[in-house]
Amino acid sequence: MEHSQPPADSIETPGHAALMVKRFPDGAILSEDTARPQVLVPKERILEAAAYARELGYDHAESVTGVDYPDQNEIEVVYHLGSYTDESLNGTVMALATRAPREEAPKPGHDSTRLPSLRGTFYSVEFHEREIFEMLGVYFEGHPDNRRLLLPEDWADLPPLRKDFAIKGR
């Protein structure tokens, strides 16, 4: 059977990064690549931005990455959104990023490193957000199950993916 699937970057997408920033002017475009649009949205607008991404056709979150930026004193959370239902978006993964303040002495769950949870919009972020909570100390408000996932129950050190958690010998 001959499949004439066009290559990913020639799919006619209406520039989703631009659309997002038009809707949320306080956001920033990180990349306008049609296959991988990247947008940064302030954390107050992230729920609306997620709802808008859902309107654009993205129906699930593939991956949620937490990145620690000690030099900017922020922790970034990147949601990679994909679509199964919209054929034209099949090759597109939108990176929707937001940032939370970072604390020098973190107390996970009890400090200002908080973000609204996207579980209401994208159900599939449930375990990913739990992982980020334990790995970076970002508490997700509205997440029903903010427990440990991968780390041992009695882990009492810093969240390990923060840059100030140093590996021994490195």
């Binding site: 129906d59 979150a61 593939e62 099949n90 994208f122 159900y123 599939s124």
Partner: peptide
């Protein structure tokens, strides 16, 4: 789709989604 499953789980539920094709 809602749970964001992938691979054989997704394709067993009737979603034709394979990254090798898409």
């Amino acid at each position: 789709i809602r749970l964001g499953t992938t691979g054989s789980v997704l394709r067993a539920s009737g979603v034709d989604y394979d990254i090798r094709k898409r």
